[in-house]
């Protein structure tokens, strides 16, 4: 009898710990919204550039950018010369070329508002503040975007960017 009692106690404790762990995992796991927000953070990190960036670091960032973009991306942004359907490769090469013009690039993304269409499609409204600096040039701008995302292989990828007007004339 005594032996049986000793066997049940650790088993109950184990079950209790497993239950608490499962509960914690369920309640603390990142929601789809959080995962999409994270993708925006990764996007800004991939575009950003510090003054002392080397070739290897730039290559890693462009690789990271490639992981964030879908094969085809639909772009509709005011004054952007490459609007329309673009391949991820085209955008990565454009980003590489664009980044080379500036010594530093900072990208801050604010007010991310995620709209989940279904389990594999989402739209997200956001505000991006971009500041660029080179030796004799400095500029910054704020734009509002509506990004479209699709879940591919358990990861959210950007499928489109279109400008979302904050002020409607």
């Amino acid at each position: 009898m005594r032996r049986k009692k000793h066997l049940w106690r650790p088993l109950l404790k184990l079950l209790l710990v497993a239950g608490v762990a499962a509960g914690l995992f369920y309640w603390l796991r990142p929601s789809e919204e959080k995962r999409i927000r994270k993708q925006f953070q990764r996007l800004s990190e991939a575009i950003e550039k510090s003054g002392d960036e080397g070739n290897a670091s730039a290559a890693v960032k462009m690789f990271a950018l490639g992981n964030l973009l879908h094969e085809q991306i639909d772009i509709s942004i005011r004054d952007f010369p490459y609007n329309g359907e673009q391949s991820a490769e085209t955008l990565i090469s454009l980003a590489t070329r664009g980044r080379s013009f500036f010594r530093t690039i900072s990208v801050d993304i604010y007010d991310i508002e995620v709209i989940l269409i279904d389990h594999e499609l989402a739209d997200a409204r956001c505000v991006a503040r971009v500041a660029v600096e080179s030796d004799n040039y400095r500029d910054h701008g704020v734009r509002h975007f509506m990004a479209s995302l699709a879940k591919i292989d358990k990861s959210w990828q950007f499928t489109g960017f279109r400008e979302d007007e904050l002020l409607r004339k």
């Binding site: 801050d108 604010y110 007010d111 505000v127 991006a128 503040r129 704020v142 904050l166 002020l167």
Partner: peptide
């Protein structure tokens, strides 16, 4: 008006 985050306003 709040434009971008808490810092940039119109």
């Amino acid at each position: 008006l709040r434009l971008a985050g808490p810092r940039v306003m119109l």
